[in-house]
């Protein structure tokens, strides 16, 4: 089984994604895009920045711009939100995607990949590349570039 798996990975038939949840739904971005995953850190807000820009984080001396993905998706926040940070790098700057919960690295077969269903709300569609069918439910594949395109 394992060897088969490895072979399939080699052939590019399996995608490795960093999975996370926001408001109960499961999402993922390619593992290779992820620098690191880290707990909530103090954020300094940036006055007059777009609403979904949560602020700046000091990550061991590097300035990281935090993006509140929930707000980006138009999902209302909870009372006392607690987020995890997924740190990605884009065009020489570091960004953090604020998500509810981080899941394991997920290996999904490309054969289970499908185009974005029409039923998905328009607000999120722009950021989504497609969905993977899992044993239980769907994993929504996020295009990181689109999230950082503001």
């Amino acid at each position: 089984m394992d060897i088969e798996n490895e072979l399939e990975k080699e052939k590019g038939l399996i995608s490795q994604l960093c999975g996370f949840t926001i408001a109960g739904e499961t999402y993922g971005i390619p593992v290779l895009e992820v620098q690191e995953v880290i707990k909530a850190l103090p954020t300094s807000p940036i006055p007059l920045s777009p609403e979904f820009v949560d602020g700046l984080i000091n990550l061991r001396g590097q300035i990281v711009t935090a993006i509140n993905v929930r707000k980006l998706f138009g999902i209302p926040e909870v009372e006392k939100p607690k987020y995890m940070n997924i740190i990605v790098k884009h065009e020489d700057s570091y960004y953090s995607l604020l998500v509810d919960k981080i899941l394991d690295v997920m290996e999904l077969k490309n054969s289970n990949f499908e185009e974005t269903p029409d039923t998905l709300d328009p607000k999120r569609r722009g950021f989504i590349d497609g969905v993977y069918k899992m044993e239980k439910g769907l994993l929504i594949l996020i295009k990181t570039e689109k999230i950082l395109d503001f």
């Binding site: 700046l56 300035i63 065009e91």
Partner: peptide, 16 residues
Amino acid sequence: LSKKLKDLSFYAGSTI
């Protein structure tokens, strides 16, 4: 500051 925030011309950057 990240390039995406360049519109906020009243900031010259950030510091720790």
